[in-house]
Design a protein around this nucleic acid. Sequence first.
DNA 1: GATGAATGAGACTTCATTCAT
DNA 2: AATGAATGAAGTCTCATTCAT
Lengths: 213, 213, 213, 213
Amino acid sequence: MAKKTFQKLSKEKQNTIFDGAAACFAEKGYYGASIKDICENADISNGALYKYFDNKEELFLEVLLRCQEILEEELYKKYTHIENSLKQTVEAYLNQIIKLHQKYPDYIKIYSNLGSFEADLLSDKLNQPFMESADYVYNMVQEAREKGEIKLAIDDKELSFLLDNYFILFLNSLISNYHEIRFRFFLHKKPEEALTNQDKINFILQSITPILK
Amino acid sequence: MAKKTFQKLSKEKQNTIFDGAAACFAEKGYYGASIKDICENADISNGALYKYFDNKEELFLEVLLRCQEILEEELYKKYTHIENSLKQTVEAYLNQIIKLHQKYPDYIKIYSNLGSFEADLLSDKLNQPFMESADYVYNMVQEAREKGEIKLAIDDKELSFLLDNYFILFLNSLISNYHEIRFRFFLHKKPEEALTNQDKINFILQSITPILK
Amino acid sequence: MAKKTFQKLSKEKQNTIFDGAAACFAEKGYYGASIKDICENADISNGALYKYFDNKEELFLEVLLRCQEILEEELYKKYTHIENSLKQTVEAYLNQIIKLHQKYPDYIKIYSNLGSFEADLLSDKLNQPFMESADYVYNMVQEAREKGEIKLAIDDKELSFLLDNYFILFLNSLISNYHEIRFRFFLHKKPEEALTNQDKINFILQSITPILK
Amino acid sequence: MAKKTFQKLSKEKQNTIFDGAAACFAEKGYYGASIKDICENADISNGALYKYFDNKEELFLEVLLRCQEILEEELYKKYTHIENSLKQTVEAYLNQIIKLHQKYPDYIKIYSNLGSFEADLLSDKLNQPFMESADYVYNMVQEAREKGEIKLAIDDKELSFLLDNYFILFLNSLISNYHEIRFRFFLHKKPEEALTNQDKINFILQSITPILK
DNA sequence: GATGAATGAGACTTCATTCAT
DNA sequence: AATGAATGAAGTCTCATTCAT
């Protein structure tokens, strides 16, 4: 946990610091990001950082918690209920992921790489994994079930897993070149053709259509 | 490309070196892995590494190529045809992923993190992204279609994307704590309950059953 | 240019660092001098050096500027006017070169080797070559001409070049074994005989006598 | 001294090796030149070098001896007698220096930097300094004296020193940017004006004219 | 509490030299 | 005799962290 000194700072200042750190971690990863760069990005002195956090690892963990906070605030809180159909909710959710990525690209990049090296390295320190997304999707499916929207004889758990897969890999495609190319492959896009986010959304919506009534 | 000196080594020695390097890259990522550690792991002297590769980056790229080679040899070559039903093929493929992971955990970890920081950093050097998997799955679906196995009114591209999502996220669950917990969540496993790979396979097979005849 | 951190140091500390570096560069040249040795000589930590200068090359250039500064302060500023005869001025100048060499042997050695490998290597970085000496000697001759001291029908440019040759090669004899032996040869000194600086000065003065009235 | 293995090689091969080494030493100095580069330049294997010479230092010393040999063969042997006047001999000698430099630029660069760092470092190993040039010039003056060519009341030793200064600094101007600029300064050449070797020769000849009859 | 200079271990890479083939 | 792969010490430079001000 961050030191008291840090907690006395204004929320605004705290977020400025997290933003600077997130930018560095997103660009180069945990090991690649240097304290010097982070301090410059966060607009604080080298010494100040060590007044706020014990060390680099603690700072990284705090940035991860800030990720969680952002997802909570910007994604899950906004979609507690299905307004219309499941299909529309899925579309809205995918669009919200895009907005989220536009607003917080660095945090999203860090989050989506959680499965990667560094996160595992620190996983024993991260008490509660980020299962908000999964939880949210499960609720989404349950509501749709109640509204009788689901045609296919598929279990709620299975369907929510299936949908969450789309969300995870769509998010990855915003961040990783590899996943962008993977979408491009399955959409049969030629190298010279543009691939828009709307193309990907349409593809996903098309994919789930036969599942729904 | 690796230097001549490296190519003169026996395939066995070459692989020993790749294995040592892969272990380090898998554990700590590109930036976190040190040349010193790599050399100790690979059982070569510090200087020798630089007789074999121009620098750390080239070594990493060569390890990625070795990943590709392993996947090619151990996964795709073995499943060119659907022997029985699509469902059985999916099951066999998932089991093959497990075997592959048991035999080459480090390479698989590196591969599955390709979407991450470092890989993107080097992505312009990686000429051909790893789309073998996607290609393989697409063929799998086409064959199933010809055999009239698919019930759901879903496009080949869409279904193969859906299946490939399972493969990717199943593979991730072997490697990343986060994805393991995610499976656990969707399978409604309690913290004290064990989660076996067979559980995950059954869950996936169950999920795709309504899609098939 | 040196970094701010360096410029904040006291002049004394700055010169201590330059002195340490100069000693190493004088002894082993640019490539031969190691950062480790330089830091030990300069009594600073390895890391500190890189807070002061971007890299070894910049440090070397700064040492060269310090050379220039020393020559300016200790040689040229002190002899702006011919007090007595040209001959006496030449003698005084040669003696001043000796004092300078005694006080700053390392800087003088570096300066006198400016024509050498490394300096040329860095010559595009050295904006203004060290032509102070040449300029000074030219003024010396002009003043002597005005005072009617020159007998020989020789141009000012030619005479000043001739004199500057003596100064350069006298300075070299203080530093380089080769040039010391060369003096010894022309003075017909036997191996067992001592060769003093005064011998060399007398020889030069004797040489220019027939040129003067 | 080079090992027997080296001495068994043909003179041609020996010189090829010296040439390659000289090119490296001339470009980067003793410490800056690497054995790897030298071997590539000399077109021999890394191991062969150590069959021919004990180590880098010995190789460097042998290259210096080759310098001496070249000077001997190409400069002093060709001018044992004054054919015409001293002035013409000086001119011929300066032109010969140019030719020598064109033919053996690397050796000449090394030679002219003898006064520098590395040479001193190794000076105790260099048994006989290179006084051939000085000796040659002294003879030149003695012959001129006998022929009654010298007007100025100057001693042979002094005049030969004076002349040798010209030769040394003219040679330096072919090699070092610093000495080139120095000539430019004394010749009052503007930065945009070209400075040819003939300009420098004329300047020197003009300078010595008043000394001669 | 905040600064940023200082530290020295450790990063990647190159080096002169040795030695098995 | 010749090769060039192997060595590991040492090169320059950066790093996370500490500490005097």
